[in-house]
Design a protein around this nucleic acid. Structure first.
Length: 300
DNA sequence: TTTTTGCCTCTGG
DNA sequence: CCAGAGGCAAAA
């Protein structure tokens, strides 16, 4: 394995991979994290001063890692910005200084978060892993375990609803197939490239106009898959944080689109263009104790 | 604009 | 056995 001189306070790999942003990484008993980024299988062994890494089947895929973990983003500068916006974020940031938003493949983020509605973390992990095994291309083998690329929209468009229901997609099964067909009409890559280039609110509006995708899931796709760093997915936990932070009556009301948008706007006014990253820091800090106790993160 | 309700299905109370 | 799970859409 090769050594990367990126300390844990600049990149907290376990926090990033277990903070509900992604669903397919596994950690071995020896503390080796294994996953797939696009068409590259990856093994990581995080230490305090840096981490060991290797890519399969081709070695030397450092650029893939650097992009996935958004190592170009200057965290200390962001932390200073957020603290200037509201100093109450300081404890959360200092407890998890290496937490980052991942730059996932847009398709994986898109289809993964479709599965997240009315669901639990364990079931999402199971469902998404099975989806890759059924419809994804094998990428490499590690310790006798085959790692799969995330399936293309073209492939998912041909999925059998009965198979999906067997993997706990439930009522989401027909939505998955319909949305895969939609993605495939424009061409998956072209569509996501266009959404990435659009202003954040326009990209979110287009996503949320699709059947089965609401504001929350659209924001998750924007933040985790499209590089829209100001997107703030608002769920129960974020509402509670917003109530504490902003102290107005917004979070107490029913989460209508009006209230949902107002909460996101408050985050963006307070923390700036990386409000989604700030939200992740507050969110993770809020749930970290439960995470350690349950040995499982909450989905995002 | 807001509130309510059903939805696949599994887990925890 | 029932409520809830980091929602969504339809209806009032």
């Amino acid at each position: 394995m090769e050594w990367a001189d990126v300390p844990a306070d600049r990149l907290d790999i376990p926090a990033c991979l277990a903070s509900g942003q992604c669903f397919r990484w596994r950690v071995s008993d020896e503390g080796e994290w294994r996953g797939v980024i696009g068409g590259t299988a990856v093994a990581l062994r995080p230490k305090a001063e840096g981490f060991w890494w290797r890519t399969l089947p081709e070695p030397g895929g450092w650029d893939v890692l650097a992009r996935y973990f958004a190592l170009d983003v200057d965290l200390p500068r962001l932390h200073a910005e957020w603290t200037a916006g509201d100093p109450r974020i300081a404890p959360a940031v200092s407890r998890h200084p290496g937490l980052r938003i991942l730059r996932q493949e847009p398709g994986e983020a898109f289809f993964s978060f479709l599965c997240a509605t009315n669901n639990t973390i364990q079931k999402i992990r199971h469902t998404i892993t099975r989806l890759a095994e059924r419809y994804g291309e094998p990428v490499a083998e590690v310790d006798g375990e085959t790692l799969f690329a995330f399936p293309t929209a073209e492939r998912l468009a041909e999925a059998e609803e009965a198979d999906l229901r067997g993997d706990l997609w439930g009522y989401r099964a027909p939505r998955l197939v319909a949305l895969a067909r939609h993605a495939a009409t424009e061409g998956e890559a072209a569509w996501f490239t266009r959404l990435r280039a659009l202003p954040y609110l326009e990209a979110r509006a287009e996503l949320a106009s699709l059947f089965g995708i609401g504001l929350k899931v659209a924001d998750c796709i924007c933040l985790f898959g499209l590089g829209h760093d100001q997107a703030v997915p608002v769920d129960t936990h974020v509402r509670r944080i917003a109530a504490r932070l902003f102290g107005d009556d917004l979070p107490a009301r029913t989460l209508t689109p009006t209230v949902y948008n107002a909460i996101g706007e408050r985050f963006r006014e307070t923390f700036g263009p990386y409000a989604g990253w700030a939200q992740q820091a507050l969110f993770f800090d809020e749930l970290a104790p439960a995470t350690a106790a349950n040995k499982a993160a909450t989905p995002r």
